[in-house]
Amino acid sequence: MQVAIKRQWSWLPAFAVCCVVATIILIPLIATFSGGLRTNGELLTAPFSIPRTLHWENFGRVLAAGSPFWGEIINSLLTVVGTVALLLTVACPAAFVLARISFRGREVIFNFFLFGLLFPLTVAVLPLYITIRSLGLLDSLWGIILPQVAFALPTTILILRNFFRAIPIELEDAATIDGASRPVFFWRVLLPLARPAMSVVSILAVVSSWNNFLLPLLVLTDQSQWTLPLGATQFQQQYATDWASVLAFITLAMLPAILIYLIAERQIVAGLTAGAVKG
């Protein structure tokens, strides 16, 4: 009896530790949100008490017409849409060829892409900036989208290729017998089947595009082209004394990422672990 009780409650210490960690994770987020609901005076005297009256006007100011927030969120959205659309358009066919047609040099090309997993943008960002400049893409969202697609290719091709490989050869034979050429098989049979894998790579691209900072920092100098992360840092520098508004801005800027995560947690986790493990 006692043993049974002991066993029944044995998860309690682990549970307690998890609660503590979860609190540590959540407090900064809650403090940011609730800070956006205060006046600056309240932030100075008692930043972490429960706010008595909610000052939504901070959010109102960020969202007001003429605020840079709207332009920046639209730029961020355009960049995300452009990145995902282009990424799927170029990566799916490439992954298909690398998965299902054997030809000389295939492994070389595949390893060439895998190589990219090791080096994120930081390493060659100055020459990349020069390349973008010489293509005339400074201050254009394409100057962000094209490199983002290029840097997303390794993980994307890796995940899609593994998925395409797992589709049984009998399916392709059947399609061939029915007279389908390879491109037709790819378009009509494989792609519809690959929707789960495509949603995984899309979500990964959405998150990394939404969060990208270094590249927009270098490429977009014209304020009308700025994306949200850029706008957030600028807003903080400009309103350094008005922390309440800054916190409202930060809250609004991170809200979409949190929502996407809550909706697509499974895909994000699956994609990241697959990309990491296989890489």
Partner: peptide, 27 residues
């Protein structure tokens, strides 16, 4: 088959080369 391989691979390889490999070499 060869045409499929080339057409399907070219955009990815070109983008990857232009924005990832080439900058590393240029660095």
């Amino acid at each position: 088959r060869d045409v499929t391989i080339i057409l399907f691979l070219l955009p990815s390889v070109a983008l990857f080369f232009l924005f990832v490999v080439y900058p590393v070499i240029q660095a």
